[in-house]
């Protein structure tokens, strides 16, 4: 699925007029636009190329998606409650507390404000949502309340997915910290132009799952979550 997501990001050219000229690309290092002459360089092993790639990181911006994933992994490993062998012994409340602890780090790494993680009994197929007004994310008890490994991965995937929505909104409404002009422009058209969420999450109900699934904000959030999950080796 991860490779398919990356392919979707590369190929998506949305059918609506507003998106006609937006072509999304994977967060490849070469796509980072540099705005300052002096930037930090970090190295990361590119599995597809089989060699080290240099990332030009701009200090005042959040790190690239891949670098964020690596930093999140370091924090994830420092929270014992988030390791599956411990997670499965926790109550739902304890799991949510552990997710909140990780969210603090994810937000700091992404240069955004942290949001509160809650769990609710959501109606399928809603697995989670981000509420920008209340600055919360909700993860379905369908995953948080289930002891299986699959549900554990789903809960963490949802955490990273909704956190990425918080990051998108932070860039649009509070402070620009994302390095890619293209990403931010696509999110702006998605949220402000077409209106991603009209308050009742009707878009997948009225226009079907494809229109929901291929929105720039959704593709970006999925790729981010999958990048982190892959880095965590779950």
């Amino acid at each position: 699925m991860f490779e398919m997501e990356k392919a979707v990001m590369e190929e998506t050219k949305l059918s609506t007029p507003a998106f006609a000229d937006v072509k999304l690309s994977t967060p490849a290092f070469a796509d980072v636009k540099l705005s300052t002459p002096a930037e930090a360089e970090t190295g990361i092993f590119d599995e597809t190329q089989g060699r080290m790639e240099t990332i030009h990181e701009i200090p005042e911006f959040a790190p690239s998606m891949e670098v964020q994933a690596g930093l999140i992994r370091e924090e994830f490993l420092r929270i014992p409650e988030l390791q599956y062998e411990n997670w499965k012994e926790l109550t739902v409340e304890e799991r949510v507390a552990a997710m909140n602890a990780l969210e603090q780090h994810v937000a700091r790494i992404a240069h955004r404000d942290p949001i509160t993680v809650l769990s609710e009994d959501l109606e399928y197929p809603i697995m989670g949502y981000y509420n920008n007004q209340d600055k919360i994310m909700v993860v379905s008890e369908f995953s948080v309340g289930d002891d299986s490994y699959e549900a554990y991965v789903k809960a963490l995937t949802t955490l990273f997915h909704e956190g990425r929505h918080a990051y998108q909104d932070y860039n649009l409404e509070v402070c620009r910290v994302e390095q890619s002009d293209e990403f931010v422009a696509a999110w702006a058209v998605n949220n402000n132009g077409l209106g991603y969420d009209n308050g009742e999450r009707l878009i997948f109900k009225t226009r079907g799952i494809m229109h929901y699934f291929t929105q720039p904000v959704e593709v970006d959030a999925r790729v981010f979550a999958e990048t982190v999950i892959k880095e965590l080796e779950l």
């Binding site: 109606e123 399928y124 197929p125 997948f204 109900k205 009225t206 226009r207 079907g208 799952i209 494809m210 229109h211």
Partner: peptide, 16 residues
Amino acid sequence: ETYGMYFTGAVLTLDW
């Protein structure tokens, strides 16, 4: 029934 889709959403999903 399962996803709460309107008719239009269901048809477009079937198309995909």
